[in-house]
Design a binder for these strands. Structure first.
Lengths: 240, 240
DNA sequence: CAGTGGTCTAGACCACCAC
DNA sequence: TGGTGGTCTAGACCACTGC
């Protein structure tokens, strides 16, 4: 089955913006015209534009039309979108990311993990600590907890490769939603040893719970970044 | 004019979840049933549920139904949603927030501000630094730049009260989208003096550009928080 | 006033899931 | 196989904007 029409339409319009056919701060053709040209209904065009508006690529003004949004001037090289559902390998590229396993065990969950992953006390979890290297430089320490029952047969090979790809492609599970918290904190011994953070260097931490589309929590994790290597970004639209 | 039906429906369903009529991890009535009960079309119900799904309150499974999402177990007292379009006064409550103006001037913008606010070099800006106090305790330092042409007649009274409320209620301008960056950094003299941060205390900074619904940038700002007083949270859904 | 996007409807067909 | 949500259509009316 092909992708939904509204996604194809969104893709097409996105391409045209990228290609410069529709230029920044100018009007797009109106929804009716686009609908006729692309041979879909107006509602399908609107749905596509709604998606692009949420992504910040266009904005609409009732009574006027739909405009291409201006470029964002403060993009930085350490920026990472805070709303992604993918692993580092996919985000940055498999060639640039290497992983070193600092800890890998199976345990019974303590009370906090039981609550975060909705588990009973005798349902085992993986306790994983990985150092991720970007271009062979220490980058992030990821501390991950996952229920064994949802991710069977996890091993060192998968941990070195890509856990997310294993979950998606082998187990055919899909991520649904996530709750994330971003905070600053002081560096600990681990950060100093593995990320070469100094004692008075701040750390940027991302704490998250990820749920599958069927509502089951599959991951609770903490990612600790050096403050000079990572920033998190959010594109937000007031209309939704 | 009353609010759109799909927003009223969303509100109604939200209330029922809060009231416990629909309980966590259980099925909602199907869309057709809800549509009949609330006397709207099925599409209107779906639109309402889409909104609630984006907010993380429910999740849908094709073929099964719509479920009430489980409670989030890691909510903390310093959590602030990273996707809000409102001032501190409205977020936390006007009684608990006080503001002290540390700096207020009108200037020509430097090159960075010109780029961030899409201004020419002779279009003046406000340069505002405010210390915000929560329950009379130092909380955030906000450094804000706004074009004078979009926000005329700004004065100390408004700065002490609520800039956002002035922009919305007096000037009738609406925020459209925002690009935000969250980062950790070291404390500077200002943080130490006004937020009583220690020299080796990390800071959590939010940098953002906010656009109006008509595409004009209205604000570039930096909010500096003590690491132990603020965390930013994001609810994200993989489907959108 | 004309043109734009926003909303809403009834009806149809499809994909997905449990049984 | 039956019931669920996902998509799509044609058509209608409304609200907002600039002229």
């Amino acid at each position: 089955m092909a992708k939904a029409k509204y996604l194809q339409v969104a893709e097409e319009i996105k391409e045209r913006i990228k290609a410069g056919i529709y230029k920044a701060s100018t009007l797009l053709p109106d929804q009716e015209t686009l609908a006729k040209e692309l041979d879909v209904s107006r509602l399908t065009v609107k749905k596509a534009l709604d998606g692009l508006e949420r992504q910040g690529l266009v904005y609409k003004q009732s009574g006027l039309g739909t405009f291409v949004a201006s470029q964002i001037p403060i993009k930085g090289k350490n920026d990472a979108p805070a709303n992604l559902f993918m692993g580092l390998k996919k985000e940055i590229g498999p060639d640039r990311i290497k992983s070193k396993i600092l800890h890998f065990s199976v345990e019974f969950p303590d009370e906090q993990i039981q609550a975060n992953l909705e588990l009973k006390k005798n349902e085992p979890i993986y306790n994983i600590i990985r150092l991720r290297l970007l271009d062979n430089e220490p980058f992030v320490i990821e501390h991950t907890f996952m229920p064994v029952k949802l991710v069977p047969n996890l091993d060192e090979t998968i941990l070195k490769d890509s856990v997310y790809s294993y979950i998606h492609k082998k187990l055919h599970l899909k991520f649904g939603r996530a709750y994330r918290r971003i905070l600053a904190c002081k560096s600990d011994k681990y950060d100093q040893k593995y990320l070469h953070a100094k004692e008075d260097d701040p750390m940027l931490e991302l704490e998250q719970i990820v749920w599958l589309t069927n509502g089951q929590p599959i991951e609770y994790s903490l990612s600790r970044n050096r403050y000079d290597r990572r920033t998190y970004t959010i594109v937000e639209n007031n209309r939704f």
